[in-house]
């Protein structure tokens, strides 16, 4: 048990703080929602009712989609794009998909390589892109979920103000949808770019996200 906790502490820690933050969002989100309801003279929602409301689901999904988009872009962009001096970048002569030998696929697979790395054909192609495929699928599904619950939340608001509801097709071109979407994207893109660039000169001793403290500023693709 102790060994399991130690070997999985990173995944467990983030899983735990995710659940705590989601719980906190539900409590605070409900309070804010009910304040708004009060000013409109509408009914208050219990916590269970708020948890199945379109408002809560939209707030959760708009953040999910942007996080998974961020990682999808980072995974794919760093195949081709470089940043001199950054531990987040590959070495400057390694841009691109690299050779089968470098990537240990097909006949270059090692004894302990995953079977789909060795087998070749479609399965190796799929497996070679499986991380981006997974992050991309989660991004698209959470963005879809944001739009579906978003139009419902938007229409509930419209009806409470005696305004006409709109269709999903209208909603995905609406100011509300793109305002929610882009306000999340801009912060993710800034944070990722900042991480790639600040790590040229700044260090965190012991972190694999940083270069070793004593690494030269123009050392690229070195992780601590």
């Amino acid at each position: 048990m102790r060994r399991f906790l130690r070997e999985h502490s990173l995944g467990l820690f983030f899983g735990l703080i995710f659940l705590l933050a989601l719980f906190g969002q539900a409590i605070a989100g409900r309070a804010e929602f009910n304040n708004h309801q009060l000013t409109q003279g509408l009914a208050q929602l219990s916590l269970p009712s708020y948890l199945v409301s379109a408002d809560f689901v939209t707030d959760v999904m708009e953040n999910w989609q942007s996080e998974f988009l961020q990682f999808l872009l980072y995974i794919v962009a760093t195949v081709w794009l470089l940043q001199r001096g950054s531990p987040e970048s590959k070495e400057l002569d390694k841009a691109g998909l690299e050779s089968d030998e470098d990537q240990k696929v097909g006949k270059y697979a090692a004894d302990d390589s995953p079977p789909w790395a060795r087998v070749g054909g479609l399965r190796t192609t799929i497996y070679s892109n499986s991380l981006a495929l997974a992050m991309g699928t989660i991004f698209l599904l959470s963005w879809l979920a944001q739009s579906i619950s978003g139009v419902t939340a938007y229409n509930e608001d419209q009806l409470s103000q005696l305004q006409a509801p709109i269709s999903w097709a209208s909603y995905i071109t609406s100011a509300d949808f793109w305002s929610r979407t882009l306000q999340n994207w801009q912060s993710e893109f800034l944070a990722v770019g900042t991480m790639a660039v600040l790590s040229i000169y700044l260090r965190q001793r012991g972190s694999p996200e940083s270069k070793p403290v004593g690494s030269a500023h123009d050392a690229t693709g070195v992780e601590g």
Partner: peptide
Amino acid sequence: VRPMFTAYLIFIALGLGYAIVIGVARGLGG
């Protein structure tokens, strides 16, 4: 190694499934 991988995938699938079901059900007049 595999339990954590599976747990994360299940969690995310449940979250996405929940969100889509709630969104669709509410949208259909729930």
